[in-house]
Design a protein around this nucleic acid. Structure first.
Lengths: 363, 363
DNA sequence: TTGTACGCGTTATCAG
DNA sequence: CTGATAACGCGTACAA
């Protein structure tokens, strides 16, 4: 029964040791009802001596609430042989997870982490249903039309993505608005005309929305944007390096600016450009998206759209738990603000201290 | 009972619909015993129609196995107000978590994520005991002497750290050996004599071991190392920037090389140096530790010690599950290899393509 | 091959 | 204020 051989004390052990019934133990432990001071003490010392910790499985069964929320991200292919290859994961996802974890913990829940392959999303989500009270599903794991049936069975909030799904709660940023700002900055402030947008994986609504909005507003401002497809990459720095190299090998003329769907690709672009003798931002400007923590500490520092990643995770958890506990929020589509962070890679002189103080942490 | 109002079908619903007993349902679902083809089909269609998913709490209670392993990292202070400050988290930890998640999933387990504050480590770990079958505890969450009592109650593996704890399984890298290599490279290959080591948080055995080993071997090679304390930072880029600025403000002479306890600090060091007109590696060489995925795509690319972060997570999960399922490994201290990655920041000409092919991922 | 009935550890409902 | 005892949903001896 306990394969590991270690035996854990149960509430019965505590009750016996304290000379009371299990009901009493349960009550004092949960503060459900007051107990006589003496009884209280007896129970507590028994708990301490036995180092009793309630079995969450039993508690979950009894209460119908496991106090666990799951978060599913696109990333871990089930196939093991791919693991060695895909070493570079999405920093944005990690930040979201951190925020979600902190929020869950604060609200008395735990966070169950779960990667899903490109084809396993639906199955993964469905299976997880038995282990959690609710789910946070990130961009790219579930096509919009798969959401509704799943959301009907389990409290569920979609994090990032298009925001077009009405069947579940959504927490996201205004991708479209952010790209309008980027385009405006590049075209109007820097007078750049020949632009390119490097997309992430095709299955990502986030990437798609950013691309479309960027193209649209750039064109509206009189600039031209290179065809999207050849500029597609895979969200990673390594992938972006490859894409740029392929482009350079084809001996094509570089655009004035390359805007990337995330920071990691922007990094790769800068690296590849530097490696082939091109200067950023002198020869070509580069911008990213996310504002990963390292972005400001690079040379050149990265111009990017700040996305409140941790807060996204946190908001998602808060909404989810509200739903789980029967307080469905009225706002079903929460949109958090973005902020254009103008730094060195677009050609602006970076003052270097934009918000550095915020980074100080006592040792 | 179900605060969210959604009702989930149970095994009884399936049994009724299929016209069999719950025992039969359980058997076909778990493959415990063969069933007549017809019965099998009846059950499976009922399962499909009802979209039945077994309740993990019940299953865990019944079997004494929750199929969940927890991982505890130092990082999320319980205090909410600190969240806004500490935005930069350890990339190494994120990588470990990714590796652990993938491994857990492959072995049929789920990963429960849990941050612990500097003072809450013990309590957090103890409380988690009720939710999981075993725990992975990262560097910095538990002082060595707190490990034994906890490890006695729950299968537990320590990830990173000194490796000095005999009371639990340990998975780590050879920090000391790695630093010997770094020192040798800097002193013998580059002829540098005046060195400095930037530590991470004082509570981290990882940082301490690296520092000690580096100092020792550098001195043995005839170099001198600046006093450790003024060079201490907090693992983050932002912290490192501050440390360097403070140092420069004091108008002290820079060392020939600054070796950092992790890559993020190395990045910050380079950034701060660049910002004050110093050139890396021309004026001062810089090296890191971890080899985060971005390290090779920076300018200059980062010389660092590659640490197999994901594999650490994976190995920890594998060991843990072996213990949980009653197959205690004989090797209680698993040490994974590190590799010195000589790149641009130490002054070596970086060929640029060291292992770039490994980063290609199909889109 | 299948069904009955019990146990897993908690919480919660009732009496007392 | 406290103690029996019935769920909770699933796995599994034990019988048939």
């Amino acid at each position: 029964m306990q394969p590991s051989g270690v035996t854990t004390p149960t509430i019965y052990d505590v009750a016996e040791r304290a000379g009371v019934s299990i009901a009493t133990v349960s009550r004092v432990l949960n503060g459900t009802a007051a107990a006589r001071p003496k009884t209280y003490e007896q129970v507590m010392t028994a708990v301490r001596e036995l180092r009793f910790v309630p079995n969450n499985a039993a508690r979950g069964l009894s209460q119908g609430l496991k106090k666990v929320v799951g978060i599913v991200f696109a990333g871990t292919p089930a196939d093991d042989h791919l693991l060695s290859v895909e070493e570079e994961s999405l920093l944005f996802v990690d930040a979201v997870v951190r925020g979600a974890e902190a929020a869950a913990q604060r609200l008395g829940y735990s966070l169950l982490l779960n990667g899903a392959g490109s084809t396993t999303g639906e199955r993964t989500v469905a299976a997880l249903t038995g282990k959690v009270d609710g789910l946070i599903v990130l961009d790219q794991v579930l096509p919009d039309r798969r959401v509704a049936p799943l959301a009907k069975r389990t409290p569920m909030v979609l994090l990032a993505g298009s925001g077009r799904t009405r069947s579940a709660y959504t927490v996201r940023v205004d991708n479209a608005g952010a790209m309008v700002e980027v385009a405006a900055h590049l075209v109007e402030r820097h007078g750049l005309r020949r632009l390119a947008f490097m997309s992430g994986r095709a299955s990502s609504p986030d990437s798609t929305v950013r691309a479309q909005s960027f193209v649209q507003s750039a064109v509206a401002l009189g600039a031209e944007v290179a065809p999207l497809e050849p500029w597609r990459s895979d969200w990673t720095s390594g992938g972006a390096v490859q894409t740029i190299r392929a482009f350079l090998a084809a001996d094509e003329r570089l655009p004035d600016a390359i805007v990337c769907a995330n920071d990691q690709m922007a990094l790769g672009v800068i690296h590849a450009l530097n490696g082939s003798g091109h200067r950023v931002p002198a020869d070509v400007a580069v911008a990213g998206f996310d504002d990963i923590s390292l972005a400001r500490h690079l040379s050149p520092s990265l111009t990017t759209v700040r996305q409140p990643s941790r807060q996204l995770g946190r908001a998602a958890v808060e909404v989810l738990i509200d739903v789980i506990e029967g307080r469905p929020p009225t706002n079903r589509d929460i949109v958090l603000p973005t902020q254009l962070k103008v730094r060195g890679s677009c050609g602006c002189d970076h003052l270097g201290d934009d918000d550095l103080d915020a980074w100080r942490v006592e040792i």
